[in-house]
């Protein structure tokens, strides 16, 4: 995983609760056996007027001009602002892969679904949970300013707008560490190899029926 650096980006407002991972990346694109190439199909059914299929050249497809990511300046957005329970439904990691592919590095919402939350951090996307009123105020700013940007400072756990207004955010320390240092989690777990082996041996002794296939 790449390290997460402080950046400033355009905030795209997606004003909806319960956006599910089927909406983030529809099922036909899950047939890919690769980790990349999902960006053009992010929110495919909302973003285009035609039906998308894998392998298509998306640059010629008819765009839904009402959809926020097709409007100026949001094609260049790197921060997504949304409401409650973002990323619910299917566990597909293609959802964070598609968000990254589009250029999103941070998502700000009232709440996130559990599996999606994990999947994003594993891919270096920072998810920030804020209170309802704070989210509302950010939505209002995206309306009143025509290119509302935020600086995301992970180290100091703060969002800073162009006027210098600061919104602090919480994040679990292990997630912060992993993002800041771009940790290889599998390598980290394997550093406890001996402990896992000892556990496994005892576990099998206690539950000898477990390893029978």
């Amino acid at each position: 995983m790449d390290k997460f650096y402080t950046f400033t980006g355009i905030v795209a407002p997606l004003d909806r609760d319960n956006i599910d991972t089927d909406a983030i990346i529809p099922k036909q694109f899950l047939k890919s056996i690769h980790r990349t190439g999902f960006g053009p199909n992010l929110f495919d059914e909302w973003r285009y007027l035609d039906h998308g299929e894998p392998g298509q050249d998306c640059s010629n497809r008819p765009l839904n001009q009402d959809f926020v990511l097709n409007r100026n300046p949001y094609q260049k957005a790197s921060i997504l602002l949304t409401r409650e329970n973002f990323g619910c439904g299917s566990s597909r990691e293609h959802a964070p892969w598609a968000l990254i592919g589009f250029g999103f590095k941070t998502i700000i919402a009232e709440s996130f679904a559990d599996i999606f939350y994990n999947n994003c951090f594993k891919n270096g996307i920072l998810l920030i949970t804020l209170a309802k009123e704070q989210i509302q105020s950010l939505f209002e700013k995206t309306e009143s300013e025509n290119e509302f940007t935020l600086a995301v400072n992970l180290e100091n756990q703060a969002l800073i707008d162009s006027r210098g207004n600061m919104t602090p955010f919480e994040i679990e320390s292990f997630r912060k560490d992993a993002l800041m240092n771009g940790l290889d989690e599998i390598g980290l777990t394997l550093s406890h190899e001996e402990e896992i082996k000892t556990f496994e041996k005892n576990h099998l002794q206690k539950h000898p029926w477990l390893f029978t296939t």
């Binding site: 566990s91 999947n119 989690e185 599998i186 394997l190």
Partner: peptide
């Protein structure tokens, strides 16, 4: 790597869905 892994909890097992990075993590480390 499927959110409906919760199904298996009906048998008194702790069962849950994970993403692909975690699938790899389990393949490599159990």
């Amino acid at each position: 790597g499927d959110s409906h892994t919760s199904t298996h909890g009906a048998l008194g097992a702790l069962a849950f869905g994970i993403g692909t990075s975690e699938v790899e993590h389990v393949l490599a480390t159990q």
